[in-house]
């Protein structure tokens, strides 16, 4: 068994909606191993996206700890956490979340720019661009680098989002319903792409409500009533 890259223990999270309190997570615990493709399944509104956001430090838990590569994420200061989010974690969202003013290559380059300062960028730019072009080619959009998101299909946009998530070569890729907004065929292409990335060593945590999508993962956990219910080796049954 490879070493644990990420562990989340006893994660609690609630939201206030007016006078009511909505308890989303209460005591969710899971571990992600390096090189693993983990799927988190759950019904709509079960808190799986919330859990993923907490794992990636996009949101903070009310209780519990998240340890990434031996570092307690929420014991870090904001700057360190932002730095870690930039360099160590890549996010892929259901709605792609690309910046509409930027073209494909600019969207993909953005994390490299964030990682670089104004003074160091002139020296880092060439290498960053080479990597961005390489990543864009890997996701099959080498011919569309100058297109804006509005000129791309849903599947292509998600590929751009994946390329952006990968450009800083993060150890962990978090994908939140990456096929949720795509048709079946395009969704399959995206899942194939994620599988292929995983085969190349990329650790992936994917949130999905779809059993077939979850089937692409090595392991699938269910989130029910705010807790991780079971932890199953899927043996990739859904993978064609």
């Amino acid at each position: 068994m490879s070493k644990k890259l990420l562990t989340a223990e006893h994660i609690h999270k609630h939201y206030r909606i007016g006078p009511a309190t909505l308890k989303v997570l209460h005591g969710a615990t899971l571990a992600v191993h390096a090189g693993e493709f983990l799927a988190i399944r759950g019904a709509s509104g079960s808190g799986k996206s919330t859990l993923l956001h907490i794992l990636g430090s996009l949101d903070s838990p009310d209780g519990g700890t998240v340890v990434y590569d031996g570092i307690d994420l929420f014991a870090l200061g904001n700057r360190e956490r932002e730095r870690l989010r930039c360099m160590e974690v890549g996010f892929v969202f259901q709605f792609y979340h690309l910046l509409p003013e930027l073209n494909v290559i600019e969207n993909v380059l953005l994390p490299s720019m964030i990682a670089s300062g104004v003074l160091t960028w002139p020296f880092a730019r060439r290498k960053a661009k080479d990597i961005a072009h390489e990543v864009v080619a890997r996701v099959g959009l080498g011919e569309r680098v100058s297109h804006r998101p509005a000129e791309l299909s849903g599947g292509e946009r998600q590929r751009v989002a994946i390329a952006r998530a990968l450009v800083n070569r993060p150890k962990l890729l978090l994908a939140d319903e990456p096929t949720g907004n795509l048709d079946r065929k395009t969704g399959k292409e995206i899942l194939d792409l994620l599988s292929s990335l995983n085969e190349q060593g990329q650790t992936i945590v994917m949130v999905t409500h779809d059993a077939q999508s979850a089937g692409y993962a090595h392991r699938c956990v269910n989130l029910r009533d705010g807790k991780i219910e079971d932890d199953t080796d899927t043996n990739v049954p859904g993978r064609p």
Binding site: G56, L58, N78, E82, C86, F93, I114, N168
Partner: peptide, 16 residues
């Protein structure tokens, strides 16, 4: 607002 979320999700700081 959503762009701000995107930028922050890929590591931009609050100050940035």
């Amino acid at each position: 607002t959503r762009d701000i979320g995107i930028i922050k999700s890929i590591g931009a700081s609050a100050r940035g």
